[in-house]
Design a protein around this nucleic acid. Structure first.
Lengths: 282, 282
DNA sequence: GCCCAGCGATACCGCAGGGGTATCGATCCC
DNA sequence: GGGATCGATACCCCTGCGGTATCGCTGGGC
C-alpha cells in the first residue's frame, strides 16, 4: 500500500463524498474513484458502501480509516524528524517541546534553564499548544517531547516520566464569598449556579452543551472569572501567574495533578534523552 | 513520501550497499540510486555518505531508518488489520492473540474459555511466539492483543492491563541437592557452576556469549535441565506443565512476574475490548 | 605504477499507470 | 417525468518508474 492510496482513502472516508474529497486532494473525481476501487480489490475488502446518492464506511473501512491515520502520522513524523535531524546536524534547532499554553510555566522555565546548562545541550524550540493537542504533535513529528498533565491528558502509546504532583485550587473572582475560606470542597465549587465552569472547544472545534460560557484560551478564561461569570479549578502552580483580581483557594478533595514528560516510545533521540534526564533531576 | 521510497531507503540503510539492496528489492541498481537521491533532495537532507567503496548512514539517515521502520510497520498493520476486519465481517477469524510459547498456558486457557462464553465473542486465533516477539507482532498488525510478562517484556508504546502477579521458582533436575530445600535464594541458583543458565538467541538470531548451553525453545530448555546441564528461573505457574524429572523450588528474592494483557493504543477493536474486559475480570 | 574489479552515478529508452476530459447510469427531488 | 447530483466507465496523454548500457572513481594485486 502506498501513502498516496491511504491519503486518498482518508479523504473519501472523512468527506463521505468522492467529489468533495477529490477537490480537497486537488485531483479530479474519476482517478479518485479508480484508486479506491483498486485499493479495495488489492485488500480484498469492501471499504465503502456506495449507493449513487450516499457513501458510507463499512466495518473494514472504519478500521482502515483509523489505521491509515496512524500510518500517515508515522510517515509524516518520519519526514519531519529527518528534516529536523539534518538541521540539528548543521547546527540549527535540536528538538521541539510541546506544552499547554499557560500551564506549568515555572516548571517549563526551570527545565529549559537546567537543560541549557548541560554540556551537550542543543537548542530546544518550545511549542505552546491547546488542550489535548500534545499527543497529536508527538505522533506526527511536529514535536519530540511534551509536558502532559494527568489525569487530563492521555498518555496511551507514549513513554513518560513523572515530574511532580500538585494539588488543585479553585480560581474565583476577588470578593466572592468563598475567597475568605482557607479551603473548599469540590461540591462547593462545581455547584455554584452563578459561577459555572466554562466550556472548552473539543478537537473538532465545537463546544459541548452546558450552562457555562465559552472560552478558547487561558486569557479568555481568566477574564471570564474576573468578570464574575465563571470559576475554574487548576493546579496550584498557576497561582504565580494569577492577576490581582483573582483569588485561588485550595480544593481539598480535587484530584491531584501530575505533570509528566512524555515522548514517542521508539524515538528517544539524544536531545530528548537529555531533556528527560534533566527533567527527572529537577 | 511514499512507502516505496521508505522501503527502498530501509533496504539500502540496512545493507549499506546499493547493489545488494537492489537485489533484495528485486529491482536493478540504477533506479534505486535515483530514488534515494530524489528522496534526499526532497527532504533537503543527506541520508547516506557514499565513497565509491563504502556507504554509511549520516545522523539524519539514522533517524529516518528508525522512523521509516516504524512508519512501514504502521502501514503494514493498516493493511493486515483491514483484511482481518473484512474477514471478521464475513464471519471468519476475529482477532489474533500473541503469547509466549509455553508461558502462562492456564491463564491463556481460562481467558479463551471465559471470553468464548461472552455473548458477543468472536473467534480468537492464538499465535504462540518466541521471547520478545510480541511487541513487533502488535506493531505490524500480525496480532491484535498479546500477553506479556513484566519485567521481561517491554510495554513501551502499548496500552496494558495487569492480570496477575506471581513469584518465581527455580527449575532444577530431579535429584539435585537444592531440590530438597523448601526455598532458595537467587545467589544460590545463579552461582551454580555445574548448572549455568541457558543462552537464548536475540532478535538477530545470534546467541550472546557466556558459559551456558544454547536453547531455542521451551522443550530444549526443559530437556537441558533434565539432562543436568542447566537450570532456569520461571514464574511458578509453569509448575503445572513440568515433567516428572524436573523440580521447582521457590526463589525467595527473585523479582515477581506480572502478566499483563497489551494492545496497540489506538486500535481497540470490539474483539480486543472484549478480551481485555474478560481478562481483567478473571 | 598500472590495470582490473567493484561500486555508485549517469544517460537513455520503453511502458505501466496515474491523471485528465467526456460521458454514462442510477437515484432523488420537484 | 425531467433535471440535478453523484459515482463509474471509456478513452487519451504524459509523467515517472524500471530496465540496459556505460561512465567515473577508488582500492588492491601484481
Amino acid at each position: 500500500m502506498e501513502t498516496r492510496e491511504l491519503r486518498y482513502f482518508v479523504a473519501v472516508a472523512e468527506e463521505l463524498h468522492f467529489g468533495r474529497a477529490a477537490q480537497r486532494l486537488g485531483i479530479a473525481q474519476p482517478p479518485l474513484s479508480r484508486t479506491i476501487s483498486q485499493l479495495e480489490r488489492r485488500l480484498g475488502a469492501v471499504l465503502l458502501e456506495r449507493t449513487s446518492r450516499t457513501v458510507s464506511l463499512t466495518e473494514a473501512g472504519a478500521v482502515l480509516l483509523r489505521e491509515a491515520r496512524a500510518a500517515l502520522d508515522a510517515v509524516e513524523a518520519a519526514e519531519r524528524r529527518t528534516r529536523r535531524a539534518a538541521l540539528a546536524a548543521s547546527g540549527r534547532a535540536g528538538a521541539v517541546l510541546a506544552s499547554k499554553a499557560g500551564a506549568s510555566s515555572e516548571l517549563l522555565a526551570k527545565l529549559l534553564d537546567s537543560y541549557a546548562a548541560e554540556p551537550d545541550a542543543v537548542t530546544i524550540e518550545v511549542l505552546l499548544c491547546g488542550i489535548g493537542e500534545q499527543e497529536r504533535l508527538l505522533r506526527d513529528g511536529r514535536a519530540d517531547v511534551a509536558l502532559l498533565h494527568l489525569p487530563f491528558d492521555a498518555t496511551a502509546g507514549l513513554d513518560t516520566e513523572e515530574l511532580c504532583t500538585e494539588r488543585q485550587v479553585a480560581i474565583l473572582p476577588a470578593g466572592h464569598p468563598l475567597t475568605g475560606r482557607p479551603h473548599v470542597h469540590m461540591a462547593e465549587v462545581t455547584g455554584l449556579p452563578d459561577l459555572p465552569m466554562p466550556r472548552w472547544p473539543g478537537r473538532d472545534g465545537k463546544y459541548p452543551d452546558g450552562p457555562g460560557p465559552q472560552a478558547r484560551d487561558h486569557a479568555q478564561l481568566l477574564q471570564l472569572i474576573a468578570l464574575g461569570r465563571a470559576c475554574w479549578i487548576a493546579p496550584e502552580s498557576c497561582r504565580a501567574q494569577l492577576r490581582d483580581d483573582l483569588v485561588a483557594v485550595p480544593v481539598l478533595d480535587a484530584p491531584t495533578v501530575t505533570t509528566v514528560i512524555a515522548w514517542p516510545p521508539h524515538s528517544r533521540s539524544r536531545a530528548v534523552a537529555g531533556l528527560v534526564r534533566t527533567a527527572t533531576r529537577l
